[in-house]
Design a protein around this nucleic acid. Sequence first.
DNA 1: AAGTCGGGGTA
DNA 2: TACCCAGACTT
Length: 354
Amino acid sequence: MIGDPASGDFAPRLLRWFDRHGRHGLPWQHPRTPYRVWLSEIMLQQTQVATVVPYFLRFVERFPTLPGLAAASTDEVMAHWAGLGYYARARNLHAAAKRCVERHGGELPQDFDALHALPGIGRSTAGAILAQAWGGRRAILDGNVKRVLARWHGVEGWPGAPAVEKRLWALAEAHVEHVPDGRMADYTQAQMDFGATLCTRANPACLPCPVREGCSALHEGRVDALPTPRPGKPLPEREAVALLLENARGELLLQRRPPTGIWASLWTLPQADTDALMRRWFAREADGDYDAAEELPLIVHTFSHYRLRLQPRRLRKVAPRPGVGDNEDLRWVTRTELAALGLPAPIRKLLDSL
DNA sequence: AAGTCGGGGTA
DNA sequence: TACCCAGACTT
């Protein structure tokens, strides 16, 4: 029967393919310690391998161990994450490291529920860590696996819909039962390599596919139609004003974002939703002529759920009020210090262009 | 069930 | 441009 999970052939065939054609030289595989597996899984959430690799290498060089990460400051952790996106991941990673030191003897717990209870570790990531770090018989369900299983089993519906996702989890767990002992780490990696290199979203390579026999989508001629795409939605727009203030020494005034929300815990330019609010903030914090500010090129930045139109305005030789700009969340920064701080990518780009 | 969180790859 | 990606968390 096409796409029948009871046909138990799926996992062994995928493993045979992985041994010859899988990715065996990724940095978190050498050495494959629980801490490095965990870090890689967090960084790889919604982020492609090629993007993650340089961040991973810099991160483990600075924070080689879990206790070392737990002992680091928020600023330094964020600085090593800046540019990677989804900054809640870094905050959760740091919090989870501290909790491991407090409750688990400075190591990751091997128990699924304890792992799942750590911030930033959901069902799929917990499974991936258990399988890759200790060979646990646990399923994963990331974007790759969803796409592969939707095709192989001919599952209709957008995989983000809870009912569809539930069905896919059941299929993923059924396949895990047919993985040979001692090969869970390889099987987990094999699924991701297969989805990333052969069973890709566009132009999948069905000819050399190791599981083409038994693939429902291929059999039905629906490979390009599965998985069902997300239902469309219009993208709302928001506007904001940012202020680039320089003092007589050429330092810039930066503000730390709150620990939640957009660009959480990153340093960025003082920002307000409207020009009037920005003007009010300036009158409170500094002395000078706000209307003398020079308009810099508009920054249009697209997030997953809205588009931000950010108008930067530049004002030089600003005289700050006494006491302003020397506290934890608002401070003057030299060009040299800028490099060590975590800045959102579009803000970094703007400052680099000056 | 829908919304919140980025930056980059790809067509 | 629009969609997607090694998801998790909040409401």
